[in-house]
């Protein structure tokens, strides 16, 4: 689905992401983890063309992303940014209208079909009761769902989520992660996300990509990747690893390495 080969991304002269090669498989949930400043968000910026990569190849459906028109890329790839803000009087429905942008010409109005798709996105994110509420007045978790709903209105095949659970309490974290799982299972959505919570990454990911100092350290299933040795090496912290009933690792930090 999304393939990167030997991708380098620079800020000015400084390489931030080095030799990033990975195949993000269709219909799977992938999570990128790594310490602050390791280049996780930069990988996202390169995948969504907010930053040009210096060298290497990024392909979506076997086509290099720089060959896509901006709008045709946005029909395949939707991005939930780390921080978002909507004008103070925009309702959830107003926000979702923006999701239709890539499907419209510059001055073309939305039609019935767009409304149907917006209704669908509202339903799947359980925002029916909130669609006429202002985005700014929602709780953190509801707001996050509204932005994800806008992404869904783009009808993408791939969803990039940059720290979707940061700043949320555990109830809303749980809601957002369950929504992601549901989208993945019911729509066969390919998901790539950045998470800080290793246990969350463990429970919800098919594959984890660990990066440190701009380079991939290792990749694999949560069971194979999330070991005490690796976490100690990458995060400089000792952890105890328990087991969820599914067999997935649960990570608890216990001291500095």
């Amino acid at each position: 689905m999304v393939t990167t080969r030997n991708v380098y991304v620079h800020y000015g002269e400084k390489p931030i992401v080095k030799d990033f090669s990975h195949l993000f498989k269709e219909g799977k949930i992938h999570t990128i983890i790594g310490p602050n400043g390791s280049g996780k968000s930069t990988v996202f910026k390169a995948l969504s063309r907010l930053l040009n990569h210096k060298s290497g190849v990024i392909e979506i459906n076997e086509t290099p992303i720089n060959l896509y028109q901006p709008k045709s890329l946005s029909k395949i790839l939707a991005v939930l940014s780390q921080t978002n803000h909507a004008p103070s009087d925009f309702t959830v429905r107003d926000l979702l209208r923006f999701g239709r942008t890539p499907h419209k010409r510059f001055f073309e109005a939305l039609n019935k079909e767009d409304d149907t798709i917006i209704d669908w996105a509202i339903k799947i994110t359980h925002l029916e009761a909130l669609e006429n509420r202002r985005v700014c007045c929602l709780s953190g978790g509801e707001r996050q769902r509204a932005w994800i709903a806008m992404n869904l209105a783009q009808q993408p095949k791939v969803l990039l989520l940059d720290e979707p659970t940061t700043y949320l309490d555990i109830q809303h974290q749980f809601e957002v992660m369950e929504l992601v799982k549901h989208l993945n299972q019911s729509l066969n959505m390919t998901v790539v996300m950045i998470l800080h919570d290793l246990t969350q990454a463990s429970l919800y990911s098919d594959e984890i990509i660990v990066i440190n100092k701009g380079e991939i350290v290792c990749t694999g299933t949560p069971e194979t990747v999330l070991t005490t040795e690796l976490i100690q090496k990458v995060y400089n912290v000792n952890v105890e690893i328990g087991r969820h009933k599914s067999g997935k690792p649960l990570i608890v930090p216990i001291g500095r390495a």
């Binding site: 063309r49 901006p70 991005v79 940014s81 004008p87 999701g99 942008t101 001055f107």
Partner: peptide, 23 residues
Amino acid sequence: ILCIRGANLLLLGDNVATNLGAR
């Protein structure tokens, strides 16, 4: 009048507008 959609898009910030396919 033709600028209305574009003006609205910029309200969401550069990153979101770019992600929605705006130049």
